[in-house]
Design a protein around this nucleic acid. Structure first.
Ligand SMILES: [Mn+2]
Ligand SMILES: [Mn+2]
Ligand SMILES: [Zn+2]
Ligand SMILES: [Zn+2]
Lengths: 133, 133
DNA sequence: TGAACACTTTAGAATCATTCCAATTCTAAT
DNA sequence: ATTAGAATTGGAATGATTCTAAAGTGTTCA
């Protein structure tokens, strides 16, 4: 079972990591996920959690999120969305695009949200690499 | 001298780090900057480079960029712009918004660029934090 | 002039997240 | 059952960054 990219064999550990992430809306880190999965599978190791996250994300079932230096976060929401990061409490939440789309209010953030900074990273292949490859 | 936020005393080292970064368009890492500054000031230490980068960015003179796991990168371009990251060669370049703004072509990327993924992070204060204080 | 204080710089140690490694266990097909 | 390939493990290794404690600089004012 895989949605995008290469297949992943859905072993019990991978399934549990995936399910824990699907059941989380807080963009947990690898160690967050480790402690949550450990409740169900006390024998799992942190190395396996990293390994599962790597396989799941290279299969396109989950995404890695890098908002700031430090631990990577993970997200199982595959719909088009952006991340709102509160610099006061550290919470990371999803924001989905609104219909209608005034660029100022393009992203559907809760009322009262204050935006201080947005960072958009565009990933792809640059023109010179595209012609070479 | 400071543009935003708190002041920084522009010591010789801080000035050199700042000037090296201003003269770079490749979003260098701390160690990149270290080796470039070392050409001019062979006695500077990596700790000082980190220290200068921290002061300069908390004064708003430069920005930290986190595109992927690993080393942070730095940028002295304070104009509104986004980062294009080539996943093949690793280069990071600035892209500035075009006038007129069809969202599909909102960012002025060189012809031939292939976009595979964009990540927008919105930073700020969430509604509950904003009301608390 | 020069003691006092605050800030900067330094080398090296410490920390933290992640990746690597080598050994073991599991799975799926013969 | 046998066996090859993949998954899992704990611990070691790595790499980036931060911390620490000591030494340097420089500004103020008795
Ligand atoms: Mn998300
Ligand atoms: Mn930039
Ligand atoms: Zn908040
Ligand atoms: Zn390229």
């Amino acid at each position: 079972m895989a949605l995008l990219g290469a297949d992943v064999r859905l072993t019990p550990h991978r399934r549990e990591v995936f399910e824990v992430l699907q059941g989380s809306t807080d963009h947990p880190t690898a160690t967050d996920i480790f402690t949550r999965v450990k409740d169900r599978s006390p024998s799992i190791s942190l190395a396996t959690v990293y390994n599962c996250l790597e396989h799941l994300s290279s299969a396109g079932l989950i995404k890695q999120v890098h908002l700031e230096r430090g631990q990577s976060r993970y997200c199982a929401n595959l719909h088009e969305h952006v991340h709102f990061h509160c610099e006061t409490c550290g919470k990371v939440t999803d924001a989905h695009p609104a219909a209608g789309f005034d660029p100022a209010k393009f992203w559907n953030l809760p009322a009262g949200t204050k935006i201080t900074r947005t960072e958009l990273a565009i990933h792809g292949t640059c023109a010179s690499c595209a012609t070479k490859g």
